[in-house]
């Protein structure tokens, strides 16, 4: 039967694809190329959750120019792989941030920028705020209130090191969070 044959045929293709992926995963050259490619195209989604966004904007502007590290802010989450939580998130905003994070394709990283995103900062006892690590897997923290643009650059470098270090996990990575 044609249908049954088709199913068997597709099943085989699935197996082949899995084997190919395993082969590629083990190849050192592919891993290196991939991590090199990704760490200089960290595109953050433009998600100014709070006031640290002013320093984020200064970091993307000519004086500090984080674009030389491949840091190019984008409007839509579908083209991005880095989420910078810029300062305090309120409960209302945290739901949006979570949703934006879910819309981003894998692999993806998160920077918690500013004291508020780290541990509440000056708004620590407010009824309406929430720290980033309670709803997102954070890869790098930037202390400061607000952090200077250089501090954000440092966090980008930390993420690049992390990508190089964890290059084994780049292919076939699953969203565990």
């Amino acid at each position: 039967m044609a249908d049954a044959e088709g199913l068997i045929y597709l099943g085989n293709l699935d197996d082949v694809a899995k084997k190919a992926l395993e082969f590629l995963n083990k190849s050192e050259f592919i891993k290196k190329t991939l991590s090199w490619g990704i760490d200089f195209s960290l595109w953050p989604v433009h998600l100014m959750t709070s006031c640290c966004g002013a320093e984020f904007a200064a970091a993307a502007s000519p004086r500090f120019d984080l674009e030389r590290l491949g840091f190019l802010p984008f409007g839509g989450p579908r083209q991005t792989n880095l989420l910078v939580v810029e300062g305090t998130t309120t409960i209302k905003m945290a739901r949006v941030v979570k949703r934006v994070y879910e819309q981003m394709p894998n692999p993806k990283w998160v920077i918690a920028m500013g004291a508020c995103a780290m541990d509440g900062g000056i708004f620590f006892n407010s009824y309406n705020t929430i720290v980033a690590r309670e709803y997102l897997p954070v890869d790098a923290y930037v202390p400061g209130c607000p952090p200077r643009p250089e501090a954000l650059a440092r966090a980008v470098l930390l993420i690049q090191e992390k990508i190089k270090r964890e290059k084994d996990a780049l292919l076939g990575v699953k969203n565990e969070h």
Partner: peptide, 25 residues
């Protein structure tokens, strides 16, 4: 400004007490 979590709580009254919900999202 406030999300639906705060309906009926009137935060700026002096007797407002709040508990952060355990699950936000």
């Amino acid at each position: 400004m406030l999300p639906e979590d705060f309906y009926g709580t009137w935060p700026l009254r002096k007797d407002f007490t709040y508990q952060k919900p355990k699950v936000f999202i």
